[in-house]
Design a protein around this nucleic acid. Structure first.
Lengths: 212, 212
DNA sequence: TGTAAGTTTGATCAATTGATACTAGAACTT
DNA sequence: AAGTTCTAGTATCAATTGATCAAACTTACA
């Protein structure tokens, strides 16, 4: 009767698949049209489900949106973690480079997260507050402390501290968040080597060259 | 009877003001919620007008959106032109710096344009195609030829050519396009000096230092 | 002032929205 | 096999959407 909670117990073989498909098509729809421009019926149809199943598996359009974002952010975390796994703990430059590379690669592979963030960041509201409180504040703090360390070791380029976060995210992700525009402009489609060149470019923007 | 065209003739004193107010509140609404998430009734109410006046002064929600974008792009052009007016024609570095400064200042003063561009760039469609065909292709080409000149004179930083446009726009505008998010993160509100530091940072990202 | 054009206002249209209620059926446990 | 729980499917709700129409009002010019 009630919405199945995180720990579903018994009959969940096919149900889990519907949940997955709903989240996947919700991610696509929210990224393309924003929350308010997205339709639950379109999301359900794309997932091969009925609109009322959204309210069954999630309790509302809002909760489906939250589930979609938690999925995307978990993917980002795992991508960043695997990119940082092999890097020397004490090498701040290498860790920064690996993080930027991970960010760019993820933005290219999963542009939906940056698209949704750009939709939501454009206006105040409950969803934005939820995003910042539950997910973005920590990421922002992590970047700032990494940046402060780079500044202390004279590895940071001439970029103002207040501006690092959004400049970095913007430089790393707009090409993919706005990929449909880039295609019309004749850029891409983004091959693997373009992404690598892009990551190297972003690193060069924020890190002083080594032998200086 | 028909929608009044650009050259209105007689009774147009108050009408022109309604048109202006509709465009102004449409800009705010489209920037905050995207085209599909925006409501004509909300736009009209904000402008102190009736919903049907949108279809009278513009013939459709789509045409109101186009008028809004032409307004914003005209403002951008005039801001950039005035920023470039006093700069030496032959000094490519100075012209690039002045353009970047103009871009950052405009993004801070009128974040709506970048917000709308980020909404529309996230998915293919008629509006995006109209934007690119009528306004963005030329701007992109202008930046690329400026960049090629900077590359030829060894003034361009180590940024891949395919990536310059979106990296520059992203680095220059995301902080303002997503200002509501930045506020929640404790950045800003953007003072005049922050904008100047931001512009200098972006210039430093894309231009090699002078005496190198 | 009278007439015609321009503009506002209010009503209405079919279509779509998110959510809810209810029935039918499938799957697991005992 | 019986009984229970979970899931799918259908129908429906009030609210909102963009657009259209016609009537009322306003302004300018003859």
């Amino acid at each position: 009767m009630a919405t199945p909670s995180a720990g579903r117990s018994r009959v969940n073989r096919g149900s889990e698949q519907v949940r997955e498909r709903l989240i996947e098509s919700a991610i696509a729809e929210f990224a393309a049209h924003g929350f308010e421009g997205s339709s639950g019926r379109r999301i359900a149809a794309e997932a091969g489900a009925h609109q009322s199943q959204i309210n069954y598996h999630f309790s509302s359009k809002n909760d489906l949106w939250k589930a979609s974002l938690e999925r995307l952010l978990a993917e980002l975390d795992s991508a960043l973690a695997s990119n940082l796994a092999a890097v020397d703990e004490s090498d701040a430059r290498a860790r920064f480079s690996a993080s930027v590379q991970g960010l760019v690669q993820f933005a290219a592979r999963r542009p939906e997260l940056n698209r949704i963030m750009m939709h939501e960041g454009a206006a105040p509201g409950d969803r934005l507050r939820w995003l910042v409180d539950n997910h973005m504040r920590g990421r922002h703090a992590d970047l700032m402390s990494a940046w402060d360390a780079l500044t202390a070791s004279d590895d940071a380029a001439a970029v103002d501290r207040d501006v690092v976060y959004h400049s970095l995210v913007g430089a790393a992700s707009l090409l993919y968040a706005n990929a449909p525009e880039a295609v019309l402009l004749g850029i891409g489609p983004a091959g693997r080597d373009l992404v690598d060149r892009h990551a190297a470019s972003v690193v060069a923007m924020f890190l002083k060259p080594l032998n200086h």
